[in-house]
Design a protein around this nucleic acid. Sequence first.
DNA 1: TCCGAATTTCAGATATTCCTGAAAATAGGA
DNA 2: TCCTATTTTCAGGAATATCTGAAATTCGGA
Lengths: 191, 191
Amino acid sequence: MNLPPLVQAFVLHFGEMGGRWGINRTVGQIYALLFLADRPLNAEDLCAALGFSRSNVSIGLKELQGWRLVEMRHQPGDRREYFSTPDDVWQIVRTLVEERKKREIDPTLSVLRDLLMETPQTPAEQHAQQRMAAMHDQIELLTRWYADIEKLETERLVQLLSLGSRVARVLDLKDKLFVIPGRAEKDRKAS
Amino acid sequence: MNLPPLVQAFVLHFGEMGGRWGINRTVGQIYALLFLADRPLNAEDLCAALGFSRSNVSIGLKELQGWRLVEMRHQPGDRREYFSTPDDVWQIVRTLVEERKKREIDPTLSVLRDLLMETPQTPAEQHAQQRMAAMHDQIELLTRWYADIEKLETERLVQLLSLGSRVARVLDLKDKLFVIPGRAEKDRKAS
DNA sequence: TCCGAATTTCAGATATTCCTGAAAATAGGA
DNA sequence: TCCTATTTTCAGGAATATCTGAAATTCGGA
Protein backbone atom coordinates (compact mmCIF):
# COMPACT_ATOMS: atom_id res chain seq x y z
CA MET A 1 0.00 0.00 0.00
CA ASN A 2 1.51 3.28 -1.12
CA LEU A 3 -0.84 6.10 -0.28
CA PRO A 4 -0.55 9.60 1.18
CA PRO A 5 -0.37 9.31 4.98
CA LEU A 6 -3.75 10.94 5.59
CA VAL A 7 -5.46 8.67 3.13
CA GLN A 8 -3.69 5.58 4.37
CA ALA A 9 -4.66 6.19 7.99
CA PHE A 10 -8.31 6.58 7.06
CA VAL A 11 -8.27 3.54 4.77
CA LEU A 12 -6.67 1.34 7.41
CA HIS A 13 -9.20 2.48 9.99
CA PHE A 14 -12.11 1.66 7.72
CA GLY A 15 -10.58 -1.73 7.10
CA GLU A 16 -10.48 -2.44 10.81
CA MET A 17 -13.99 -1.13 11.40
CA GLY A 18 -15.31 -3.17 8.49
CA GLY A 19 -15.79 -6.17 10.72
CA ARG A 20 -17.98 -4.25 13.17
CA TRP A 21 -19.98 -2.74 10.35
CA GLY A 22 -20.84 -6.06 8.75
CA ILE A 23 -18.48 -5.73 5.82
CA ASN A 24 -14.95 -7.11 5.72
CA ARG A 25 -11.56 -5.50 5.66
CA THR A 26 -11.28 -5.48 1.87
CA VAL A 27 -14.68 -3.92 1.38
CA GLY A 28 -14.03 -1.35 4.09
CA GLN A 29 -10.73 -0.27 2.56
CA ILE A 30 -12.10 -0.12 -0.96
CA TYR A 31 -14.98 2.04 0.20
CA ALA A 32 -12.71 4.34 2.18
CA LEU A 33 -10.41 4.88 -0.77
CA LEU A 34 -13.27 5.58 -3.15
CA PHE A 35 -14.80 7.96 -0.65
CA LEU A 36 -11.62 10.02 -0.40
CA ALA A 37 -10.59 9.86 -4.05
CA ASP A 38 -10.89 13.00 -6.11
CA ARG A 39 -11.68 10.98 -9.22
CA PRO A 40 -13.32 7.65 -10.06
CA LEU A 41 -11.00 4.66 -9.74
CA ASN A 42 -10.92 1.39 -11.64
CA ALA A 43 -10.32 -2.05 -10.20
CA GLU A 44 -6.67 -2.01 -11.17
CA ASP A 45 -6.14 1.27 -9.32
CA LEU A 46 -7.66 -0.29 -6.21
CA CYS A 47 -5.50 -3.42 -6.47
CA ALA A 48 -2.37 -1.32 -6.81
CA ALA A 49 -3.30 1.06 -4.01
CA LEU A 50 -4.48 -1.53 -1.50
CA GLY A 51 -2.42 -4.59 -2.41
CA PHE A 52 -5.39 -6.93 -2.78
CA SER A 53 -5.79 -9.49 -5.50
CA ARG A 54 -7.82 -8.58 -8.53
CA SER A 55 -10.53 -11.11 -7.70
CA ASN A 56 -10.82 -9.86 -4.15
CA VAL A 57 -11.35 -6.32 -5.37
CA SER A 58 -13.90 -7.54 -7.88
CA ILE A 59 -15.93 -9.26 -5.17
CA GLY A 60 -15.60 -6.28 -2.87
CA LEU A 61 -16.90 -3.93 -5.52
CA LYS A 62 -19.82 -6.24 -6.20
CA GLU A 63 -20.72 -6.15 -2.54
CA LEU A 64 -20.49 -2.36 -2.39
CA GLN A 65 -22.74 -2.17 -5.44
CA GLY A 66 -25.14 -4.48 -3.64
CA TRP A 67 -25.24 -1.91 -0.87
CA ARG A 68 -25.69 0.81 -3.50
CA LEU A 69 -22.79 2.61 -1.89
CA VAL A 70 -20.69 2.95 -5.03
CA GLU A 71 -21.59 4.02 -8.52
CA MET A 72 -20.14 2.49 -11.64
CA ARG A 73 -19.32 4.61 -14.68
CA HIS A 74 -17.53 4.34 -17.93
CA GLN A 75 -15.02 6.84 -19.14
CA PRO A 76 -15.04 7.66 -22.84
CA GLY A 77 -12.46 5.67 -24.77
CA ASP A 78 -11.77 3.32 -21.84
CA ARG A 79 -13.37 -0.07 -21.52
CA ARG A 80 -12.63 -0.39 -17.83
CA GLU A 81 -15.25 0.24 -15.21
CA TYR A 82 -14.71 3.17 -12.91
CA PHE A 83 -16.15 3.47 -9.43
CA SER A 84 -16.95 6.35 -7.13
CA THR A 85 -19.05 7.23 -4.10
CA PRO A 86 -21.68 9.98 -4.19
CA ASP A 87 -20.32 13.41 -3.27
CA ASP A 88 -23.29 14.13 -1.02
CA VAL A 89 -22.75 12.59 2.40
CA TRP A 90 -26.48 12.85 3.15
CA GLN A 91 -27.23 10.69 0.17
CA ILE A 92 -24.79 8.16 1.55
CA VAL A 93 -26.52 8.09 4.93
CA ARG A 94 -29.92 7.70 3.32
CA THR A 95 -28.70 4.74 1.32
CA LEU A 96 -27.02 3.21 4.34
CA VAL A 97 -30.15 3.49 6.46
CA GLU A 98 -32.35 2.04 3.71
CA GLU A 99 -30.07 -0.91 3.12
CA ARG A 100 -29.55 -1.68 6.78
CA LYS A 101 -33.28 -1.45 7.33
CA LYS A 102 -33.87 -3.85 4.46
CA ARG A 103 -31.33 -6.34 5.75
CA GLU A 104 -31.55 -5.98 9.50
CA ILE A 105 -35.10 -4.90 10.28
CA ASP A 106 -37.56 -5.85 7.54
CA PRO A 107 -37.07 -9.62 7.88
CA THR A 108 -37.80 -9.39 11.59
CA LEU A 109 -40.83 -7.20 11.05
CA SER A 110 -42.14 -9.79 8.62
CA VAL A 111 -41.63 -12.64 11.08
CA LEU A 112 -43.29 -10.64 13.85
CA ARG A 113 -46.32 -9.99 11.66
CA ASP A 114 -46.67 -13.68 10.92
CA LEU A 115 -46.34 -14.71 14.55
CA LEU A 116 -48.82 -12.10 15.70
CA MET A 117 -51.42 -13.73 13.46
CA GLU A 118 -51.14 -17.00 15.38
CA THR A 119 -53.37 -17.83 18.31
CA PRO A 120 -51.43 -18.42 21.52
CA GLN A 121 -52.16 -21.82 23.07
CA THR A 122 -50.78 -21.27 26.56
CA PRO A 123 -50.27 -18.42 29.01
CA ALA A 124 -46.56 -18.50 28.21
CA GLU A 125 -47.28 -18.12 24.50
CA GLN A 126 -49.72 -15.36 25.25
CA HIS A 127 -47.08 -13.45 27.17
CA ALA A 128 -44.54 -14.06 24.42
CA GLN A 129 -46.97 -12.72 21.86
CA GLN A 130 -47.51 -9.57 23.91
CA ARG A 131 -43.77 -9.00 23.94
CA MET A 132 -43.67 -9.50 20.19
CA ALA A 133 -46.50 -7.03 19.79
CA ALA A 134 -44.59 -4.42 21.78
CA MET A 135 -41.52 -4.96 19.62
CA HIS A 136 -43.56 -4.91 16.44
CA ASP A 137 -45.37 -1.68 17.30
CA GLN A 138 -42.16 0.02 18.24
CA ILE A 139 -40.37 -0.96 15.05
CA GLU A 140 -43.39 0.15 13.03
CA LEU A 141 -43.39 3.53 14.74
CA LEU A 142 -39.68 4.02 14.18
CA THR A 143 -39.69 2.92 10.56
CA ARG A 144 -42.78 4.98 9.76
CA TRP A 145 -41.10 7.96 11.34
CA TYR A 146 -38.01 7.45 9.25
CA ALA A 147 -39.94 6.86 6.03
CA ASP A 148 -41.65 10.16 6.68
CA ILE A 149 -38.57 12.15 7.67
CA GLU A 150 -36.63 10.71 4.79
CA LYS A 151 -38.77 12.61 2.32
CA LEU A 152 -37.58 15.97 3.57
CA GLU A 153 -35.08 17.89 1.52
CA THR A 154 -31.60 17.73 2.95
CA GLU A 155 -31.54 21.39 3.88
CA ARG A 156 -34.74 21.07 5.84
CA LEU A 157 -33.56 17.86 7.45
CA VAL A 158 -30.39 19.56 8.65
CA GLN A 159 -32.47 22.39 10.08
CA LEU A 160 -34.57 19.93 11.98
CA LEU A 161 -31.61 17.97 13.27
CA SER A 162 -30.00 21.17 14.44
CA LEU A 163 -33.06 21.97 16.48
CA GLY A 164 -32.67 18.72 18.38
CA SER A 165 -35.02 18.31 21.30
CA ARG A 166 -36.07 21.93 20.99
CA VAL A 167 -38.68 20.73 18.51
CA ALA A 168 -40.42 19.20 21.51
CA ARG A 169 -41.32 22.69 22.59
CA VAL A 170 -43.56 22.76 19.59
CA LEU A 171 -45.72 20.23 21.28
CA ASP A 172 -46.14 22.65 24.18
CA LEU A 173 -46.78 25.47 21.78
CA LYS A 174 -49.37 23.46 19.93
CA ASP A 175 -51.08 22.54 23.18
CA LYS A 176 -51.19 26.17 24.18
CA LEU A 177 -52.49 27.40 20.85
CA PHE A 178 -55.14 24.75 20.35
CA VAL A 179 -56.25 24.01 23.86
CA ILE A 180 -58.27 20.84 24.21
CA PRO A 181 -60.62 21.34 27.16
CA GLY A 182 -59.94 18.92 29.99
CA ARG A 183 -56.62 17.99 28.49
CA ALA A 184 -54.69 21.13 29.21
CA GLU A 185 -54.89 20.69 32.94
CA LYS A 186 -53.70 17.12 32.77
CA ASP A 187 -50.75 18.15 30.66
CA ARG A 188 -49.88 20.95 33.02
CA LYS A 189 -49.80 18.53 35.91
CA ALA A 190 -47.61 16.12 34.01
CA SER A 191 -44.90 18.68 33.23
CA MET B 1 -34.87 -27.35 21.67
CA ASN B 2 -38.27 -27.89 23.21
CA LEU B 3 -40.19 -24.64 23.24
CA PRO B 4 -43.73 -23.48 22.44
CA PRO B 5 -44.03 -23.02 18.65
CA LEU B 6 -44.44 -19.25 18.84
CA VAL B 7 -41.38 -18.87 21.03
CA GLN B 8 -39.32 -21.29 18.99
CA ALA B 9 -40.03 -19.49 15.71
CA PHE B 10 -38.96 -16.17 17.19
CA VAL B 11 -35.86 -17.63 18.82
CA LEU B 12 -34.73 -19.33 15.62
CA HIS B 13 -35.24 -16.14 13.66
CA PHE B 14 -33.15 -14.14 16.11
CA GLY B 15 -30.47 -16.79 15.86
CA GLU B 16 -30.34 -16.42 12.09
CA MET B 17 -30.38 -12.63 12.22
CA GLY B 18 -27.64 -12.63 14.85
CA GLY B 19 -24.99 -12.74 12.16
CA ARG B 20 -26.31 -9.61 10.44
CA TRP B 21 -26.63 -7.80 13.75
CA GLY B 22 -23.04 -8.40 14.75
CA ILE B 23 -23.78 -11.01 17.36
CA ASN B 24 -23.74 -14.74 16.74
CA ARG B 25 -26.44 -17.38 16.68
CA THR B 26 -26.04 -18.35 20.32
CA VAL B 27 -26.24 -14.78 21.54
CA GLY B 28 -29.20 -14.04 19.31
CA GLN B 29 -31.16 -17.02 20.58
CA ILE B 30 -30.36 -16.37 24.22
CA TYR B 31 -31.48 -12.79 23.88
CA ALA B 32 -34.67 -13.75 22.09
CA LEU B 33 -35.61 -16.26 24.73
CA LEU B 34 -34.94 -13.85 27.58
CA PHE B 35 -36.94 -11.17 25.80
CA LEU B 36 -40.00 -13.40 25.53
CA ALA B 37 -39.74 -15.10 28.90
CA ASP B 38 -42.27 -14.18 31.54
CA ARG B 39 -39.73 -14.71 34.30
CA PRO B 40 -35.94 -14.44 34.70
CA LEU B 41 -34.03 -17.52 33.52
CA ASN B 42 -30.78 -19.01 34.72
CA ALA B 43 -27.97 -20.42 32.61
CA GLU B 44 -29.19 -23.96 33.06
CA ASP B 45 -32.65 -23.02 31.79
CA LEU B 46 -31.06 -21.54 28.70
CA CYS B 47 -28.89 -24.61 28.06
CA ALA B 48 -31.88 -26.89 28.34
CA ALA B 49 -34.15 -24.73 26.20
CA LEU B 50 -31.66 -23.99 23.44
CA GLY B 51 -29.42 -27.06 23.48
CA PHE B 52 -26.15 -25.15 23.81
CA SER B 53 -23.27 -26.11 26.03
CA ARG B 54 -23.01 -24.52 29.42
CA SER B 55 -19.83 -22.66 28.49
CA ASN B 56 -21.34 -21.32 25.31
CA VAL B 57 -24.27 -19.92 27.24
CA SER B 58 -21.93 -18.43 29.80
CA ILE B 59 -19.99 -16.60 27.11
CA GLY B 60 -23.18 -15.51 25.37
CA LEU B 61 -24.53 -14.04 28.59
CA LYS B 62 -21.27 -12.22 29.19
CA GLU B 63 -21.52 -10.68 25.76
CA LEU B 64 -25.12 -9.61 26.30
CA GLN B 65 -24.10 -8.06 29.61
CA GLY B 66 -21.33 -6.26 27.74
CA TRP B 67 -24.04 -4.80 25.52
CA ARG B 68 -26.05 -3.96 28.67
CA LEU B 69 -28.97 -5.78 27.04
CA VAL B 70 -29.62 -8.20 29.89
CA GLU B 71 -29.84 -7.67 33.61
CA MET B 72 -28.55 -10.12 36.17
CA ARG B 73 -30.41 -10.76 39.40
CA HIS B 74 -30.36 -13.15 42.29
CA GLN B 75 -33.42 -14.90 43.58
CA PRO B 76 -33.72 -15.32 47.36
CA GLY B 77 -32.57 -18.75 48.49
CA ASP B 78 -30.98 -19.57 45.13
CA ARG B 79 -27.32 -19.18 44.42
CA ARG B 80 -27.73 -19.22 40.66
CA GLU B 81 -27.72 -16.07 38.59
CA TYR B 82 -30.93 -15.16 36.80
CA PHE B 83 -31.14 -13.08 33.68
CA SER B 84 -33.83 -10.95 32.08
CA THR B 85 -34.29 -8.15 29.58
CA PRO B 86 -35.89 -4.82 30.52
CA ASP B 87 -39.67 -4.77 30.10
CA ASP B 88 -39.56 -1.38 28.46
CA VAL B 89 -38.76 -1.72 24.77
CA TRP B 90 -37.79 1.93 24.59
CA GLN B 91 -35.12 1.37 27.18
CA ILE B 92 -33.85 -1.45 25.02
CA VAL B 93 -33.60 0.75 21.95
CA ARG B 94 -31.82 3.47 23.89
CA THR B 95 -29.24 0.98 25.10
CA LEU B 96 -28.84 -0.49 21.65
CA VAL B 97 -28.25 2.89 20.06
CA GLU B 98 -25.77 3.93 22.75
CA GLU B 99 -23.78 0.74 22.45
CA ARG B 100 -23.72 0.70 18.69
CA LYS B 101 -22.67 4.31 18.69
CA LYS B 102 -19.86 3.53 21.10
CA ARG B 103 -18.63 0.59 19.03
CA GLU B 104 -19.38 1.61 15.48
CA ILE B 105 -19.22 5.40 15.40
CA ASP B 106 -17.11 6.85 18.20
CA PRO B 107 -13.85 5.21 17.10
CA THR B 108 -14.28 6.67 13.62
CA LEU B 109 -15.15 10.09 14.97
CA SER B 110 -11.97 9.98 17.01
CA VAL B 111 -9.83 9.04 14.01
CA LEU B 112 -11.46 11.75 11.93
CA ARG B 113 -10.70 14.36 14.58
CA ASP B 114 -7.06 13.33 14.63
CA LEU B 115 -6.71 13.37 10.88
CA LEU B 116 -8.39 16.75 10.57
CA MET B 117 -5.66 18.22 12.79
CA GLU B 118 -3.00 17.23 10.26
CA THR B 119 -1.85 19.59 7.55
CA PRO B 120 -2.39 18.20 4.06
CA GLN B 121 0.80 18.06 2.00
CA THR B 122 -0.65 17.62 -1.49
CA PRO B 123 -3.81 18.54 -3.39
CA ALA B 124 -4.93 14.92 -3.11
CA GLU B 125 -4.54 15.03 0.66
CA GLN B 126 -6.33 18.33 0.78
CA HIS B 127 -9.28 16.86 -1.07
CA ALA B 128 -9.25 13.79 1.16
CA GLN B 129 -9.30 16.00 4.22
CA GLN B 130 -12.29 17.90 2.89
CA ARG B 131 -14.15 14.64 2.48
CA MET B 132 -13.23 13.67 6.02
CA ALA B 133 -14.45 17.05 7.26
CA ALA B 134 -17.80 16.50 5.57
CA MET B 135 -18.12 13.08 7.15
CA HIS B 136 -17.02 14.39 10.53
CA ASP B 137 -19.46 17.27 10.55
CA GLN B 138 -22.31 15.04 9.54
CA ILE B 139 -21.61 12.48 12.22
CA GLU B 140 -21.30 15.24 14.79
CA LEU B 141 -24.66 16.68 13.77
CA LEU B 142 -26.36 13.31 13.92
CA THR B 143 -24.86 12.26 17.24
CA ARG B 144 -25.53 15.64 18.82
CA TRP B 145 -29.11 15.39 17.63
CA TYR B 146 -29.48 11.97 19.16
CA ALA B 147 -27.80 12.92 22.42
CA ASP B 148 -30.32 15.72 22.68
CA ILE B 149 -33.41 13.73 21.68
CA GLU B 150 -32.37 10.90 23.94
CA LYS B 151 -33.06 13.03 27.00
CA LEU B 152 -36.77 13.28 26.28
CA GLU B 153 -39.16 11.22 28.31
CA THR B 154 -40.44 8.23 26.41
CA GLU B 155 -43.97 9.54 26.19
CA ARG B 156 -42.79 12.77 24.67
CA LEU B 157 -40.46 10.93 22.33
CA VAL B 158 -43.30 8.79 21.04
CA GLN B 159 -45.39 11.90 20.50
CA LEU B 160 -42.59 13.42 18.47
CA LEU B 161 -42.01 10.29 16.42
CA SER B 162 -45.72 10.06 15.67
CA LEU B 163 -45.62 13.55 14.27
CA GLY B 164 -43.02 12.49 11.74
CA SER B 165 -42.19 15.08 9.14
CA ARG B 166 -45.13 17.17 10.28
CA VAL B 167 -42.76 18.73 12.79
CA ALA B 168 -41.14 20.38 9.82
CA ARG B 169 -44.22 22.55 9.53
CA VAL B 170 -43.11 24.05 12.79
CA LEU B 171 -40.22 25.57 10.98
CA ASP B 172 -42.70 27.28 8.69
CA LEU B 173 -44.83 28.28 11.63
CA LYS B 174 -41.84 29.71 13.42
CA ASP B 175 -40.84 31.65 10.33
CA LYS B 176 -44.30 33.06 10.04
CA LEU B 177 -44.58 34.02 13.68
CA PHE B 178 -41.14 35.52 14.00
CA VAL B 179 -40.55 36.91 10.56
CA ILE B 180 -36.97 37.64 9.75
CA PRO B 181 -37.00 40.42 7.19
CA GLY B 182 -35.56 39.39 3.84
CA ARG B 183 -35.77 35.74 4.79
CA ALA B 184 -39.47 35.15 4.61
CA GLU B 185 -39.67 35.82 0.91
CA LYS B 186 -36.82 33.53 0.11
CA ASP B 187 -38.47 30.74 2.10
CA ARG B 188 -41.76 31.27 0.38
CA LYS B 189 -40.08 30.89 -2.99
CA ALA B 190 -38.35 27.71 -1.93
CA SER B 191 -41.51 25.92 -0.89
C1' DT C 1 -16.81 -12.82 -36.67
C1' DC C 2 -12.68 -12.82 -34.03
C1' DC C 3 -9.29 -10.74 -30.74
C1' DG C 4 -7.87 -9.47 -26.44
C1' DA C 5 -8.49 -6.50 -22.45
C1' DA C 6 -11.30 -6.66 -18.54
C1' DT C 7 -14.17 -8.99 -15.37
C1' DT C 8 -16.01 -12.96 -12.98
C1' DT C 9 -15.94 -17.53 -11.19
C1' DC C 10 -14.09 -21.08 -8.52
C1' DA C 11 -11.18 -24.52 -6.02
C1' DG C 12 -8.37 -24.58 -2.44
C1' DA C 13 -5.18 -22.33 1.09
C1' DT C 14 -5.34 -19.41 5.20
C1' DA C 15 -7.41 -17.03 8.89
C1' DT C 16 -11.06 -16.28 11.94
C1' DT C 17 -15.02 -17.37 14.58
C1' DC C 18 -17.83 -20.54 16.94
C1' DC C 19 -18.64 -24.18 20.05
C1' DT C 20 -17.73 -27.98 23.22
C1' DG C 21 -16.06 -30.70 27.18
C1' DA C 22 -12.91 -30.79 30.73
C1' DA C 23 -10.44 -28.45 34.16
C1' DA C 24 -9.94 -24.42 37.13
C1' DA C 25 -11.80 -20.75 39.80
C1' DT C 26 -15.42 -18.62 42.53
C1' DA C 27 -18.55 -17.95 46.16
C1' DG C 28 -22.52 -19.02 49.36
C1' DG C 29 -23.71 -21.85 53.21
C1' DA C 30 -22.57 -25.57 56.80
C1' DT D 1 -12.66 -23.15 57.46
C1' DC D 2 -14.28 -26.55 54.14
C1' DC D 3 -17.67 -28.33 50.89
C1' DT D 4 -20.02 -28.10 46.77
C1' DA D 5 -23.05 -25.91 43.45
C1' DT D 6 -22.17 -22.66 40.08
C1' DT D 7 -19.57 -20.04 36.93
C1' DT D 8 -15.50 -19.17 34.13
C1' DT D 9 -11.53 -20.33 31.46
C1' DC D 10 -9.27 -22.61 27.90
C1' DA D 11 -7.37 -25.93 24.44
C1' DG D 12 -8.59 -27.75 20.41
C1' DG D 13 -12.03 -29.39 16.86
C1' DA D 14 -15.71 -27.85 13.61
C1' DA D 15 -17.68 -24.49 10.86
C1' DT D 16 -17.45 -20.24 8.45
C1' DA D 17 -15.33 -16.39 6.21
C1' DT D 18 -11.62 -14.42 3.69
C1' DC D 19 -8.34 -14.21 0.10
C1' DT D 20 -5.56 -15.76 -3.86
C1' DG D 21 -4.14 -17.40 -8.48
C1' DA D 22 -5.65 -19.65 -12.37
C1' DA D 23 -9.15 -20.64 -15.57
C1' DA D 24 -13.45 -19.30 -17.71
C1' DT D 25 -16.41 -15.80 -19.32
C1' DT D 26 -17.81 -11.36 -21.04
C1' DC D 27 -17.89 -7.68 -24.10
C1' DG D 28 -16.32 -3.65 -26.93
C1' DG D 29 -13.93 -2.80 -31.00
C1' DA D 30 -11.28 -4.24 -35.30
